[in-house]
């Protein structure tokens, strides 16, 4: 039998290397994710939208507060998108630059989505993992509390909150944060229940690792796949909720704006032929939602819960 010299040498070199680097399940998932074309397209869209939100203002000729007195009163004829007068996306009804308004709306909407999802991830994961891991009466109490909160029509409560305590950004975050973690905690609890009887958890308990450390070190990392997928699907949900609230006129208030508020304004003036007032915010809104859904889908495929 002929042994290939070079192959054996490289094998020997590898075996004698100081420390071989392992391939973590995360690295595997990353590779699968990058191979998924739709997810990559979604990710690129999201990155572009993010860049637009961060750096968009530096390309704007007009700030989002200035009124362009040249177009005021004749928006249908003068306020359409043009490169010459610096209104790339046209102006809104008051003569404000729609480009910088859209940048501002993108910032706010993304922030609402990400903050809402972040609250859901942090609170929901810890709450659900705790309930699932400790089980028994603790679990019963914690999950019945979630059931009660879930049975309340949240849109109604959110609207009441905004009406009673004034319409402010912080109140909006609070309202969205309060409701967003409920579903997450249920999903996480279910996953924890299936994890907690696995032998590696038992091994940790047998050596005497304290409960909170088991949750942080053993349970949460094994849940993160599900959590990541759900979080990416939660961001557009939060954006949608905020847009709906703003569409009703209860969300963010002038001079601030969001996609929902802009779309609402644009839809209100659609009869006067100023179609761009609806089209531009709506375009960003749609591609961002698509982007998040594709990324979420790709993550789900990459982090396939079937362990191999």
């Amino acid at each position: 039998m002929i042994i290939e010299q070079s192959k054996m040498q490289s094998l020997a070199a590898r075996m004698s290397k100081d420390e071989v680097k392992g391939r973590s399940p995360w690295a595997d998932a990353r590779k699968r994710f990058f191979r998924n074309k739709a997810a990559m397209a979604g990710l690129i869209i999201l990155i572009l939208v993010g860049l637009f939100a961060i750096f968009g203002n530096s390309f704007a000729v007009w700030s989002n507060e200035e009124l362009d007195f040249n177009v005021m009163g004749q928006v249908t004829t003068m306020g359409m998108p043009s490169l010459e007068n610096g209104h790339y996306f046209g102006t809104d009804d008051l003569g404000r630059d729609l480009y910088s308004r859209t940048v501002q709306g993108t910032q706010i909407s993304l922030m609402v989505g990400i903050v809402g999802a972040a609250i859901a991830v942090i609170v929901g994961t810890l709450y659900g993992a705790t309930a699932g891991y400790f089980g028994g009466r603790t679990d019963q109490l914690m999950m019945r509390a979630v059931d009660i909160l879930m049975s309340i029509p949240y849109m109604f409560v959110l609207i009441l909150l905004l009406v009673m305590f004034g319409r402010s950004m912080s109140m909006l975050f609070l309202g969205i944060g309060l409701i967003s973690w409920l579903d997450m905690s249920r999903i996480v609890r279910g996953q924890t229940l299936s994890l907690k009887n696995r032998e590696f958890i038992e091994a940790a308990r047998a050596t005497g690792v304290p409960g909170w450390k088991i949750i942080i070190r053993h349970i949460v990392p094994n849940l993160l796949g599900v959590v990541a997928v759900y979080a990416t699907l939660l961001v557009p949900l939060m954006i949608l909720t905020e847009s709906f609230i703003s569409f009703l006129g209860l969300g963010v208030q002038e001079p601030l704006t969001s996609w929902g508020a802009l779309i609402s304004e644009g839809a209100g003036t659609i009869n006067y032929g100023t179609l761009w007032q609806l089209a531009f915010p709506l375009f960003f809104f749609c591609i961002t939602l698509f982007g998040f859904f594709f990324v979420g889908d790709g993550l789900r495929d990459a982090l396939d819960p079937k362990e191999r």
């Binding site: 399940p25 091994a203 050596t207 094994n222």
Partner: peptide, 18 residues
């Protein structure tokens, strides 16, 4: 607990994959 240790049945399931 450090005096008594345990070895489990399913070798892969007893190790945290992460």
């Amino acid at each position: 607990r450090s005096d008594i240790q345990m070895v489990f049945q399913d070798p892969l399931a007893s190790l945290n994959p992460r």
